[in-house]
Design a protein around this nucleic acid. Sequence first.
DNA 1: CATGAATGAGGTTTCATTCAT
DNA 2: CATGAATGAAACCTCATTCAT
Lengths: 229, 229, 229, 229
Amino acid sequence: MTKESAGQHDKEQWIEELLAVKEDGQMTPKQISILEAAIEIFSDKGFSAASTSEIAQKAGVAEGTIFRYYKTKKDLLLSIVGPTMSRMIAPFVMRNFNGVLDMPFESYEAFLRAFIVNRLDFARKNFKIIRILVQEIPFQPALREQFAENVLAQVLERVTAITEHFKAEGEVIDAPTPAIIRFTVSSVIGYLLARLLLMPEKDWDDEEEISQLITFMLHGIGGPALREQ
Amino acid sequence: MTKESAGQHDKEQWIEELLAVKEDGQMTPKQISILEAAIEIFSDKGFSAASTSEIAQKAGVAEGTIFRYYKTKKDLLLSIVGPTMSRMIAPFVMRNFNGVLDMPFESYEAFLRAFIVNRLDFARKNFKIIRILVQEIPFQPALREQFAENVLAQVLERVTAITEHFKAEGEVIDAPTPAIIRFTVSSVIGYLLARLLLMPEKDWDDEEEISQLITFMLHGIGGPALREQ
Amino acid sequence: MTKESAGQHDKEQWIEELLAVKEDGQMTPKQISILEAAIEIFSDKGFSAASTSEIAQKAGVAEGTIFRYYKTKKDLLLSIVGPTMSRMIAPFVMRNFNGVLDMPFESYEAFLRAFIVNRLDFARKNFKIIRILVQEIPFQPALREQFAENVLAQVLERVTAITEHFKAEGEVIDAPTPAIIRFTVSSVIGYLLARLLLMPEKDWDDEEEISQLITFMLHGIGGPALREQ
Amino acid sequence: MTKESAGQHDKEQWIEELLAVKEDGQMTPKQISILEAAIEIFSDKGFSAASTSEIAQKAGVAEGTIFRYYKTKKDLLLSIVGPTMSRMIAPFVMRNFNGVLDMPFESYEAFLRAFIVNRLDFARKNFKIIRILVQEIPFQPALREQFAENVLAQVLERVTAITEHFKAEGEVIDAPTPAIIRFTVSSVIGYLLARLLLMPEKDWDDEEEISQLITFMLHGIGGPALREQ
DNA sequence: CATGAATGAGGTTTCATTCAT
DNA sequence: CATGAATGAAACCTCATTCAT
């Protein structure tokens, strides 16, 4: 984490998380420097335009050292975004192994709110890595595959279950689930993008904005003139 | 435009448009080849990972020829996405010079529908260039600036006017305009992405889907259980 | 060709030969410089230990220039030794297309003498390339294959035919042809090695030495004490 | 020695021999592993193309350990081929210190046979090391020098003595000794190469082949038509 | 003794760009 | 106008060697 982004986002939590992935937390300081530098530079210039020599310099190690830890530059990329992908689905892979669909939310609105807050937090803490992931997914088949299989599929399955649950409860209208999910996810991502990427420096009242967004999602933006119809 | 994408999108209209920009339609066949090849390759591999020699080869010209028309590789990029940016705002810069806000839509819903149909058409016809633009905006300050000034600002101004017009008419709820716009635009872009990028091969019934989406936007996805409250 | 070897061998003839291979003799001076430098350095230090930068320097071209002509360093190697291999078999692929075995030698001895003189000349003129070939054959499967198929097989077939011809004439003893060929070829190569590689500076009377060698091959080195038995 | 060559050559005897060189047989298991691995890899890929890290890996030791025993990679090479060179001359440095030329062979043919059998055995047991030696001699002045002084000179001296002894006895013809030696040695080496390198998998009847070869050497391959002359 | 992390020089190769033809 | 040979800086990566542990 470097100065220029310090005020913008919390200290990214990737280190602890990446460490947690390793069985015994083995990671030398140099390796951490390398990852930090790589995240910074990949995020700033894009994977292709980033040079290993610049990463080495920023990390304060010799260029060869990078290749002790990561066989190729692409390896370095994958070992940054790979674990983050795994962590993306964490909130969706909740315990429901007892056969019953475990539904910890009392209402669809509560679910939406929890979901948005949680993902905003995650996005804030993993901002740069997500940026890298989004930038590189179109060009790295390996990434795309991993994302499709390990993230999209998992999340879709779970979100479909939740949506249909609340559809049955009457809290969500009886429309095609994929369309509902598309609509929901777009709205949330749109908010996250505006919040973190387009206007990060604006003074946001997150609670208020999220409430607003949820109202839009549930009741639409149609005015009184429409409802009379 | 190459064969493999022919079935997917209409022939991209950029050529005529780019030509229209030039005062007298001056563009040699070689220059057109270069642009075609560059669009294809920039879109496939990203700007940094694309090589001018590959572009030259695909265009069927000598390497040096590219640099006769475009001083640098970045110049080539800019002359591809620049004009497209200009054309992005076309539907928003409509005649309202007579002092009155010229509002050609009878209802907000009609506006939304026209807007979505129009942008879907535009996105389909300029798919690859938009892909390049979106990919490179984060890394090219020149692009970002041009986009912010010439596109975002213009569009926002016009969309704000429209939204507030319909807010006054009671067709749109009385909520902060920026939040409404964010919500609207996110939903539309989400649809376009799913439609053209994520699942282009799916058999879409656009009219039906757009109607659905507009319903969601105007009335939300809340079910009967919510409305009783 | 550089000074240090100038006195030792004739000007190597590879250039004309390589040129002859190209359909229209197209070879820029730079490309010739590169080949000359590469032959010199590969021969002196071995393929692996030779560096392209050293070759470029010796050739007086930029390092990148090498890779315009030869995609990889190994390509450069192959384009040096490949054509030479083809030329190795030239004297063996003589006209015998009229169905008859065309035998231009009146005696086995005449054949041996012509053969040795001819190969000594060839080896002298292609000394360095042969050195490279011999050094690298064990490590380059591509070379080994080409050699086995295009050189060994062809030569063996022809030499077998010749040997059996003279066996039928009673000029060669009735022993297994492979053993005879092994013996003959070893003796000749042994002479060439001593002549060109081990003691090139010695003052050789080639005609005399070759006669001697042929006597050894035909009548052996057994002395009178043996013949009485 | 690895499995794949086990059936082909006897277990190489270099270990005992190398140990014998050391005054007190001091060689740790690690050092032996290193030598084994180095022989294998130098022989397979050539000295320059072999990497110390690969050797370390194959030997099951740390990279640094190699440099504890051998100051440089070249040192490692020399300590492999050096001792083997010493052992090459063993059969030639027989006791003849009593002033008389000690000649343990009753006939030239017996000498040739013993010599070939003995060297075939040696070559078989030291196949890989000899391969390395032959490959690297052109590029390592240190090797070349040691070979010239300690091997060639010694062997030549002894072989010259033997040859002239049998020339005096009338068993070898009265021709220049160097030419005779060249011829003899070429023939023998040619056989060894074919036997061990070119066609190792062929089913050789060594005794028969060697007899044949000796006949060729002593009586030539000239047929009856020649002898009448 | 043994390790293996670290180095940094040097390897091969790519590439945007220039310029004589 | 168009070419493509030539460039040389910089890319990614390898490797023999060192040294603190």
